[in-house]
């Protein structure tokens, strides 16, 4: 049983790059995200900040051998929020994938193409001579 005098606000800390740690008042790390990007961190932090894990005095410790049903439900709810944050990340990445390289495309103006196809110029003397080479 935890004493109220030892209760400290849950600390929510996110590294700049890849991880989020949520600590309960007992010092246990309750959730972590690895290899996530800024979008995920922002959403996950927002989600977890208002969650039960971040509320002081609301977490009770139970035996690992007999987890309380409400704890399991709470952890499931946290996981759902993380999954939602990951979904946001995938959308953000899809938007980035719209880049398209147009440098290598050959472009002709329509008048020139029209003329080359319908009224092709006579082959030059040099071209005739060239194709005769072996």
């Amino acid at each position: 049983m935890n004493k109220p005098a030892h209760q400290k606000p849950a600390r929510l800390a996110a590294s700049k790059k890849t991880s989020i740690f949520v600590r309960g008042r007992d010092g246990r790390i309750s959730a972590a995200l690895l290899n996530a990007d800024v979008v995920v961190e922002r959403h996950a932090m927002k989600s977890l900040a208002s969650s039960a894990l971040s509320q002081a005095g609301s977490v009770k410790t139970h035996s690992a051998r007999a987890p309380h049903l409400s704890n399991i439900e709470r952890e499931l709810a946290e996981l759902r929020k993380v999954v939602a944050a990951l979904a946001v990340r995938s959308v953000a990445h899809e938007e980035k994938a719209a880049d398209f390289d147009v440098v290598s495309i050959t472009v002709l103006d329509a008048d020139t193409a029209y003329q080359l196809l319908d009224s092709p110029p006579e082959p030059t003397e040099a071209l005739r001579n060239l194709i005769a080479l072996r």
């Binding site: 050959t106 080359l116 092709p120 110029p121 082959p123 030059t124 071209l127 060239l130 005769a132």
Partner: peptide, 28 residues
């Protein structure tokens, strides 16, 4: 010499009508 025309997108990428080439082979 060969009658290519520069493309709009890149002056070093040039284009020749295949019809012109086929005509040259037919003449040959």
């Amino acid at each position: 010499k060969l009658g290519f025309v520069p493309s709009t997108s890149n002056p070093l990428r040039l284009v020749l009508s295949t019809a012109t080439l086929i005509q040259a082979f037919q003449s040959q």
